[in-house]
């Protein structure tokens, strides 16, 4: 199997990652909450979510971490190693909406072969998530 993905030397600060649109279905919001072992009712029970002041169930923060992780490593390739994920949440991800992730390479650290990506995920209400992901990349085909 050939090592695929981005090489540290080929990444430049300012490079933009391809946009990724993720449809937010009710099933997906519940499935991701359960896969992250998060049984808070606001993530799966619409009636209780409304009672607690939300308009519907909404995505949990562990899933936002997971999707930001997926977005960065899908671009970087399987050899990349995730060193940091720092996120701040904004508008909730509700069922029926779509979140579009965009990212830009914001910094490079040559000594550690680390690349920082500024990530933003927006839905119809505004910014759901803003943050940065730091990944370590292989260089010269060696991990």
């Amino acid at each position: 199997m050939i090592l695929t993905g981005r090489d540290y030397a080929d990444v430049a600060v300012g490079e933009e990652l391809p946009e990724l649109s993720i449809p937010l279905t009710r099933t997906m919001i519940v499935a991701t909450a359960i896969a992250s072992r998060d049984y808070q009712d606001v993530h799966h029970d619409p009636g209780l979510a409304v009672e607690r002041g939300s308009r519907d169930v909404f995505m949990n923060i562990l899933t936002t971490n997971g999707l930001v992780d997926r977005y960065a490593t899908s671009w970087a390739g399987p050899a990349a190693r995730v060193r940091a994920i720092r996120i701040r949440l904004g508008a909730p991800n509700y069922p029926g909406d779509t979140m579009t992730l965009t990212g830009t390479v914001s910094a490079k650290d040559d000594a550690a072969r680390r690349v920082e990506i500024a990530v933003r995920g927006t839905n119809s209400l505004g910014a759901h998530v803003t943050g940065t992901v730091v990944i370590e990349l292989p260089e010269g085909g060696r991990p």
């Binding site: 993720i22 896969a35 971490n65 997971g66 992780d69 997926r70 991990p143």
Partner: peptide, 30 residues
Amino acid sequence: EAMADPNPVYLDEEAARATGRDGIVAPASM
């Protein structure tokens, strides 16, 4: 599956070893 994450290093031993790892790893965000 729930995250629809296509990275093979989480489930495919051979793919994980091809990246220099000893075997599969868990997603960092997990």
